[in-house]
Design a protein around this nucleic acid. Structure first.
Lengths: 214, 214
DNA sequence: GACTATACGGAATCCGAATTCCGTTTGCGT
DNA sequence: ACGCAAACGGAATTCGGATTCCGTATAGTC
């Protein structure tokens, strides 16, 4: 979408990264994506290295530690999400666009246990935090649009979205055996119905001193 | 299979447990509750021991390992929940009763980060599994009652409840800094609205080969 | 009060990763 | 080709915690 550097996060310094280095970094990122997807945050650095076809040392050359590696992945995810959100903003029916966006994002999470589980379980750090705020801005616009169209209940705030996403991620990412076929599709639809206008229950005011319900 | 009570007395029957032992076991359980609440599953056995005012060895005398300890706690939680559910079954308005039950349970989880986070993240084992199935039975009754009364959408199944609970637990238990005042109260109300009759969207059929939507 | 099966405490042990180190290899400018 | 800084690999080191061991203390019993 954007002509900006897609998958070449760090290395912002002027140093022109050697060719093989760039290749490896990419491989590590991809392997990490797979491993996190498969085993969650508890996957092992050695495994990531092996899958990427490099030594652990190399992994550490590119990312100071496990968390940083994860961070790069999360950032990328937020970026993809932001792109989609921007697209959604252009569609005619904002509510339908919103629902589709949620469904898409849910599927994304369902396919990626690892990233999902981290989403709600630790404060974002570094790049990822910035990426998120951009996403929030877009989401806000989409929501207001849907509300103006009278299709989304008025008492929802942007802040509610991460909450929903967080709940969703728990469901999509739930341990295999933990419950009989955890059905996030149904969960999501119920939630969307609950967000549809008009709201039946009056939502409790947010606790934080952060924003008012408008 | 002789009733051999060799080295690790499995809390079952037979030997009437010495007085001080009973006291300690109780202390450990309580301390564990606090520690799990406070630090989630990553709390330390040594801390639990210290808080309980005993040595680690003692903790291990009563529970073979960390997971077993957690399990005891989870079981207790399910039992309490089951009690409440049974009560809810007796109330006049089943939908209201259901909502209250959910709110109560949510609050319970909000107060107890540790147990919540475990709920969705690992298959239940031992006693806890049994305790859960009892709870499910009760819930099923309550749901049907609410549906018969035309207050809950008909296409919900008992299996959806754990899913909701799981989502909820992620939200209530989200890491402090992870999002600005994660507001589970709002999340819950939205969800409840989505469960209210009549459902607007058609819920996707469950994937598992487990049950039909009735 | 003495005896013994139970319990206890907590230092020592074990273990599974993350992270570090350093000798070797390789891209690439000259 | 040549040289060297940038990269690499992966064994060695560290570290945080769970679990085990075993000598000591105590409840319960006669």
């Amino acid at each position: 979408m954007t002509p900006t550097t897609k998958t070449t996060p760090p290395r912002k310094s002027g140093a022109p990264l050697r060719a093989d280095a760039r290749r490896n970094r990419e491989a590590v990122l991809e392997a990490a994506r797979d491993e996190f997807r498969e085993h969650g945050f508890d996957c092992q650095m050695e495994d990531i290295a092996r899958v990427a076809g490099v030594g652990v040392g190399t992994v550490y050359r590119h990312f100071p530690n496990k968390e940083a590696l994860l961070d790069a992945l999360v950032e990328d995810r937020f970026d993809r999400l932001a792109d989609r959100t921007a697209e959604a903003l252009d569609r005619e029916d904002p509510w339908e666009a919103f629902c589709e966006l949620m469904r898409w994002s849910a599927r994304l999470q369902a396919d990626d246990r690892g990233l999902s589980e981290v989403l709600g379980s630790r404060p974002l750090v570094g790049e990822a935090a910035a990426a998120k705020s951009g996403l929030v801005e877009l989401s806000d616009r989409l929501m207001r649009k849907a509300q103006r169209a009278g299709e989304m209940r008025k008492d929802l705030m942007v802040e509610d979205i991460p909450t929903m996403i967080c709940g969703l991620s728990a469901v999509t990412g739930a341990a295999e055996g933990s419950m009989p076929a955890m059905n996030w599709e149904r969960f999501l639809e119920v939630m969307l119905d609950g967000m549809r206008a008009p709201g039946s229950a009056k939502l409790p005011a947010p606790r934080a001193r952060l924003n008012q319900p408008r």
